[in-house]
Write a protein that binds this DNA or RNA. Structure first.
Lengths: 341, 341
DNA sequence: CGTTTTTCCGTAAACGTTTACGAGAACACA
DNA sequence: TGTGTTCTCGTAAACGTTTACGGAAAAACG
């Protein structure tokens, strides 16, 4: 069916070794025979069997991205990644690497799936997202020495791996600054209840900024819930019960903000009018919601490209002459002012 | 580093053949030795090298989904797929198959990428989406005999492959019926200008329903544009120029509807008030837009599961005792009435 | 006890590549 | 002519599996 390197060799009356060398552009092959090999390859529609190559070289030439839907979050969490993935695959393709997204079922925190990818050597490296403060995936990968990079930081105990994250701390502080400048002093913060690292960072920035403005941090104004619409809907009433009601709410997440606005509406409170609402991570939904939600926007596609470069730099096979390097970066979020605050 | 079947064999003082047989559950191996092998495998943390297996068996045990961002459509088209992919991978996993999403750059219509997947035998089958009326990918796959299934139909000249599609024709007709019942007679239709098959189906249903109601089809009320927000924004004014203005617009696509609503707003026309707006394929954006858009919703996750089953039934290695079967199905879209019409 | 069957396992080939090694031919140089 | 160098290519091993085949040992049978 599909032609192998043997067919090619037989057809040209030449040894398979020479064919392989010609195809792979090695120096020790006559320019003339190389051309003949290339022509024949095109004619016979030959392309090398990936399993064969991988087996021999011990490399798959593909990078795995672990995509992990959150439970009940089928709609929101992942669109976020598409532009990122476009950037990632674009850069990887330039280095001859494929990007394969390995899907998991919602819920299981992909530890098992990750093991499979690593142990069966389906990829040369993996890219992780939704990093947690304590992330067993990172522990596992560093232990086994399998190459990886993360979108998002973690609380790493001195482990070194390429990572690119957004400056959620600064965004949290910026959000507070902006609200204070507009006269607010009772500012609530709502974030996901999971151990997701960006939730912690956001809250740290929020706290720091409040203190800087001489505003006491009121625990009654801080809450967390499921990272989806239902979570925002459930948890918003809680901060509204504070004896001194908030006049502004910062949501860490678009889905939670949407659920929160629904809860506010049911209390007769109009976002952008009776209540300032800010979202940390912008998505298309923020833009089209009514009122349009003020949000902080990441540059997802460039981030994808950049993380690919960082990962490549850490791989011996792709690193420059100076050898592998580990890079970590934190990128800013851009404020997009809209109508909700 | 990673343990191979040889390590296992050496450790147990047994031949690799026996180890392999034990691991693969073949009958001709003593129950006792099998247990010893399994224990050792767990202890040495052994798992088979995928490249080795694939090479020997001629099968990769993975299915590829070709994800193709549309140009300028980084935000809208793909979230659509996530629930579908969840269903797809869920069912495939039950049969021991991995789902890998191969990303393409926006723009190139993935013919080249598809070739690579097929020729380098990176997957045992592929799943296509965004089928066109004339689809060269389908031609290519049927010619080469590579197994595949499609989300969406095509104008197949007698070619047989598993496919699952939504009943866009009926949705188009239903949309018209509903608008007519609400007193509209000047109904516009806006769809993507690409050769995407669902655009044709939608329009056919639209036309048929109009005729059934004795309403003449006015070409001035039919337009197409880029399948993104800018496209909807650009093309909407065109139908508004008809001498007899429409009182309702059906959009084939959420992004185009959003752009269209923006155009309408700039003309001082309020969707849901001065103009009925209906969208064929529902997404979260439709729900959160203001006014919330009436739309037709697909059951994406079950569709994913179903298409996986259909694909499996067409693969000799997975088909039941009756042998491979080719199935095609068309699923209904459910009307979600909201505020825009 | 001899013969047949069954059970279990080792041997080795095969999948399609890449690559270290060596050898023959051509060439350069003295 | 003899020696050393450079080009080019063939040979064969290796990557980690699976599996057809055959054979030894054990069991069953008469």
């Amino acid at each position: 069916m599909a032609s192998s390197i043997h067919d090619l060799a037989r057809h040209l009356n030449i040894s398979i070794g020479t064919v392989s060398r010609a195809l792979n552009g090695r120096a020790d092959v006559n320019a003339d025979t190389r051309q003949r090999v290339l022509d024949a390859a095109k004619k016979l529609n030959y392309s090398p069997n990936q399993s064969g190559r991988s087996l021999r070289q011990g490399a798959t030439h593909s990078i795995a991205f672990m995509l992990q839907p959150h439970p009940g979050d089928q709609q929101y969490g992942e669109p976020f990644f598409i532009p990122f993935l476009i950037g990632l695959q674009g850069r990887l393709a330039e280095s001859g690497l494929d990007l394969t997204v390995v899907m998991g079922a919602p819920g299981d925190y992909q530890q098992e799936r990750l093991r499979r990818v690593v142990e069966t050597r389906r990829a040369d490296a993996v890219v992780l997202a939704w990093t947690r403060r304590e992330d067993e995936r990172i522990d596992y990968l560093t232990e086994t020495g399998f190459p990886f990079a993360t979108l998002g930081r973690s609380r790493t105990g001195g482990k070194a791996y390429p990572s690119l994250d957004l400056d959620f701390e600064k965004a949290g502080a910026d959000a507070v600054d902006r609200l204070v400048a507009r006269g607010h002093r009772r500012i609530a913060a709502i974030r996901p209840s999971l151990d997701l690292n960006f939730g912690h960072l956001f809250l740290a920035g929020y706290r720091k900024a409040l203190r800087r403005h001489g505003i006491e941090v009121d625990p009654a104004l801080i809450a967390d819930g499921f990272i989806n619409e239902a979570g925002g809907y459930q948890v918003t009433p809680r901060v509204m019960l504070a004896k001194d009601r908030p006049t502004a709410i910062i949501y860490n997440n678009d889905a939670m903000a949407l659920g929160g606005c629904k809860a506010l509406a049911e209390m007769g409170i109009k976002p952008g009018q009776d209540m300032a609402v800010t979202v940390i991570v912008d998505t298309p939904l923020c833009r089209y919601f009514s009122p349009a939600l003020t949000a902080f926007r990441p540059a997802l596609e460039p981030m994808g490209r950049r993380l690919a470069e960082m990962l490549l730099a850490s791989l011996p096979a792709f690193a420059g002459p100076e050898g592998p390097r580990i890079i970590r970066e934190v990128w800013p979020l851009e404020l997009i002012a809209r109508d909700s605050d």
